[in-house]
Design a protein around this nucleic acid. Structure first.
Length: 866
RNA sequence: GGGCGGUUAGCUCAGUUGGUAGAGCACUACAAUGACACUGUAGGGGUCACAGGUUCAAGUCCUGUACCGCCCACCA
């Protein structure tokens, strides 16, 4: 029972985690209870814990712990994602460090190496979750390349392939020349850089003048196949159809008419390079133009570039510009802000490149997802994200699902001798399906989001018809995720879940705030602005870190992380610790409910507890966690510690009266610990284990949510006791202004008016031995509030000037208040139109102010006379 | 270019259906009192970004502007 006076988090936290786990508390319970399910967003195996993770998964742990207490069978299913591109680059680097390369070792050896790495270092984050106290069901840990998971991916691919949703297409895709793979639109970022706009003259083949085009990527001219102008553009009337001579290359290309060029921009004429620009590609398709590919997988010029072949694109740009200038084709170069596309993973400038890829058509699936949202089957919190989600789905392009990588789910398409593609479970299956000999399997792998899109149901056993988890736990209750992957992931899960399971994958989508640095910058390892959660846990404990983050989480878009706040959180832990120590050392063995005699202050605290429970429960239910944290903080520190404990000390020392405050304290502490547990699981569990409660749960974690009888709610006691507190506080303030040290007991103070039975309480809380009715003889300091005049007799040594100053300030304040109130009440429109209870309240306030003003003036006169 | 969020005390943020602004930290003064100095008591500190409008009354509702941040978008 003896607790240290300082709370030491690290030992306590790790001990309890092991005990919970040993007791099997992380698994869902048996039948008979409603389920509550979360399949956590699987972190990348390449990642290590950052503040965003710490917040995201702590929210989920909080929800799970809360729901467990409110009678649910809770499953929080953890796992991780194979993260195609990220892992591929890690292994690439690894090989290079070892003096090899991916190309050298080949696909098979590369994958072996990748799996080795995955087993050695792919569980970093998962282990860090344990240190944060996350109660996830480790027995159900999943990985997106697990054998069962592979089966789910195969089934989805094959079915979509057979239904014609997945198709092979030649399109201009985003090509990452460093990773040497295509990436989807949402894996790229748009930036604007200061670049140049080059104006180049393309002469007519017949020597009859020229057309000037503008371009930001002059090297792509080597693959130009036309120049386009808008049909309405008067400048080119009569010229359309003529042939131009492509500078440097000498190829003849046509001047065509198309709606794409904007006559307002540049010269109104656009060079057309179908293989390297999505718009140009459209033009090329409309006009049946050839589509030569100028860049290879490393963005070097292909043979198509003639003399420039083999050069890197930027080197080629310099050479092309120089040659154009030398040969007199360059008209001018202007500074121009040019938009570029950068790969999210590689940071490299993305090249639009024409290539053959696998696509999933989206229109039909997007409609399913939109319907689910408009039917209210999926709810976004905060709800503003619902519109963003829908608008995105409305203008959705088909999804490029193939990646030119090795690490991932290999596209299960097999090619027959005659070239026919078949989607199948295996080589053998493909031969059986097609009845032909298979000559090869497609080399590409699937976009990682293709497999993570199946997460909520593939992890529960789909498509195995005997999987019990799927029936028991799907749909999941909530998806907690960050804003940046709403499209990348949330939308895909919605579409895939609806299409394959026929039900939404989750009912709520809670989008949590982005954790920024103290000055509002993005936390980033490469910028050195990141804060490692593990360091913070080391310093202040996991509970304090959780409180720091969770107490700032609600419907906000971002939160600023400040180390100072973690100190506050640590201090709060310490306060909880010490107040609990106090309660424990004041309990006696005979703590039974037999002779409970509730006093007004007891009713006050129980009523506050009741109100706090309601606020906390509603806040947890609505993902407004910061409100729950604030209510708990206020209840504990301000109400229980600062007032109730101080007031109760008197009765606790007397054997005759101690039973009631003991009971109230124990009851309140227990309820507080329970409600606080989802936010700070360890410290609350530790203290709970010391509470001498009969028949208590074996763990706080598995204890029920507090049920507080309606009789605890007592508005009258609240008002009555809070009036006493206000009076006590006022007496303390008077003491302070008379330079009487806090806590030093003074013999007497006086009051005139009705204390409503609060005399003793007020006296003790203002450190007065005796509170007497009446007015004292001689000098005193006085004030009036709540209809009571209060007087503290003063010795000779009091600073008169200071008292005078205080009275004068009070007078000024009251005067201003009086002026405001009478101005309002003298306004006939206010009296006429405002709600009667408001008018009445203002009248009463004016009366009170006038009264107090008179008294202050009286005291001023007395003071000045004395 | 379109959309979303934010702007309230020195700092980080709350603020219910409109009724005249709160918390924590920081700051100032005081305090070794038997839970806690990671503490306690008291105090100072705000034209609620700006400009209009609605209203008896606006931090709160409407319109516009500025700045900060985020998302989306095919202008060479």
């Amino acid at each position: 029972m003896a607790l240290e006076s300082r709370y030491d988090a690290s030992g306590v936290e790790q001990t309890w985690y092991l005990r919970w786990e040993e007791a099997g508390l992380f698994h869902p319970e048996g039948q008979g209870k409603p389920t509550y399910t979360i399949t956590i967003p699987p972190p990348n195996i390449t990642g290590s814990l950052h503040m965003g993770h710490a917040l995201c998964y702590s929210i989920q742990d909080l929800l799970g712990r809360y729901k467990r207490m409110t009678g649910h069978s809770v499953l929080i299913l953890p796992g991780s994602d194979h993260a195609g591109i990220a892992t591929q680059s890690v292994v690439d680097k690894l090989l290079r460090k070892e003096g090899a390369s991916a190309a050298q070792v080949g696909r098979e050896r590369f994958l072996e190496r990748a799996w080795e790495w995955r087993h050695e270092s792919g569980n970093t984050i998962i282990n860090q979750f344990r240190r944060l106290g996350h109660a996830f069901d480790w027995s159900r840990l999943r990985f997106t390349l697990d054998e069962d998971y592979v089966q789910a991916v195969l089934k989805v691919f094959i079915e979509w392939f057979d239904r014609g949703i997945i198709y092979r297409g030649k399109r201009v895709v985003n090509w990452d020349p460093v990773l040497k793979t295509s990436v989807s639109d949402i894996e790229t970022e748009r930036k604007t850089i200061n670049g140049k706009l080059y104006y180049v003259r393309y002469p007519f083949a017949d020597g009859s003048g020229d057309v000037v085009i503008a371009t930001t990527r002059p090297e792509t001219m080597l693959a130009d196949v036309a120049v386009a102008v808008h049909p309405s553009d008067e400048r080119y009337k009569g010229l359309v159809g003529k042939t131009l001579l492509l500078p440097l290359v000498g190829r003849e290309i046509p001047l065509i008419s198309d709606v794409y060029p904007d006559p307002e921009f540049g010269s109104g004429a656009v060079k057309i390079t179908p293989a390297h620009d999505p718009n140009d590609y459209q033009v090329g398709m409309r006009h049946g133009l050839p589509m030569p590919v100028l860049l290879d997988e490393s963005a070097k010029i292909t043979a198509e570039g003639g003399a420039y072949a083999g050069l890197d694109r930027l080197e080629a740009r310099k050479r092309v510009v120089a040659d154009l200038e030398e040969q007199g084709f360059l008209v001018e170069i202007r500074d121009h802000e040019i938009p570029i596309i950068v790969g999210e993973r590689s940071g490299e400038v993305i090249e639009p490149l024409l290539s053959e890829q696998w696509f999933a058509s989206q229109a039909e699936l997007a409609a399913l997802a939109m319907q689910a949202v408009s039917d209210g089957k999926i709810k976004f919190v905060p709800d503003r994200y619902e519109r963003i989600f829908n608008e995105w789905l409305e203008n959705l392009h088909d999804w490029c699902i193939s990646r030119q990588l090795w690490w991932g789910h290999r596209v299960p398409v097999y090619y027959c001798e005659d070239g026919t593609p078949v989607a199948a479970l295996s080589w053998a299956d493909a031969e059986q399906k097609s009845g032909q000999t298979i000559v090869r399997q497609d080399d590409d792998v699937l976009d990682t989001w293709f497999s993570s899109g199946l997460w909520p149901f593939a992890t529960l056993g789909w498509p195995n018809p005997e999987a019990e988890d799927l029936g028991n736990f799907y749909p999941t209750d909530v998806l907690v995720t960050s804003r940046e992957i709403i499209f990348l992931w949330v939308a895909r899960m919605a579409m895939m879940g609806l299409d394959f399971v026929g039900e939404v994958p989750f009912r709520d989508v809670y989008i949590y705030a982005t954790v920024l640095t103290e000055d509002g910058k993005r936390m980033s390892k490469s910028l050195g602005t990141g804060v490692d959660p593990m360091d913070i846990i080391e310093k202040v404990g996991a509970d304090a870190l959780r409180y720091t983050l969770l107490s700032q989480t609600g419907y906000n878009q971002d939160i600023r992380y400040s180390e100072r706040r973690t100190e506050d959180a640590r201090n709060f832990c310490n306060k909880i610790w010490n107040a609990s120590r106090f309660v424990l050392m004041n309990l006696t063995d005979t703590i039974v409910g037999a002779n409970i005699d509730l006093q007004p202050e007891d009713r006050w605290l129980l009523s506050r507890l009741h109100a706090t429970e309601r606020v906390v429960r509603e806040a947890y239910d609505s993902y407004n966690i910061q409100e729950a944290a604030a209510a708990l903080y206020r209840f504990f520190w301000s109400e229980m510690c600062d007032w109730y404990i101080e007031v109760a000390k008197r009765r606790l020392q007397d054997e005759e009266t101690q039973a009631t405050p003991q009971w109230v304290l124990l009851k309140s502490l227990e309820a507080f610990l329970t409600m606080m547990h989802p936010i700070m699981p360890h410290i609350t569990e530790e203290i709970y284990s010391h509470l001498p409660i009969k028949d208590k749960a074996s763990f706080l974690m598995s204890a029920p949510w507090p049920e507080l009888p309606l009789s605890f709610e007592d508005a009258d006691s609240e008002a009555r006791v809070e009036r006493w507190f206000a009076i006590a506080r006022s007496l303390r303030a008077q003491r302070a202004s008379a330079d009487i040290e806090p806590g030093r007991t003074i013999a007497e103070a006086f009051f005139e008016g009705d204390l409503d039975g609060g005399d003793a309480l007020i006296a003790s809380q203002s450190w007065v031995t005796e509170l007497k009715q009446g007015a004292p003889e001689g000098a005193c300091i006085s004030t009036t509030l709540e209809g009571v005049d209060l007087h503290i007799p003063l010795g000779a040594s009091v600073d008169q000037a200071k008292l005078l100053d205080k009275l004068q300030r009070e007078e000024a304040k009251l005067l201003a208040e009086q002026a405001g109130l009478s101005a309002r009440l003298n306004n006939p429109q206010f009296v006429e139109r405002a709600k009667p209870e408001i008018v009445e309240r203002e009248r009463a306030a004016l009366e009170d102010v006038t009264d107090r003003l008179a008294k202050v003036r009286e005291r001023l006169v007395t003071l000045q006379a004395g």
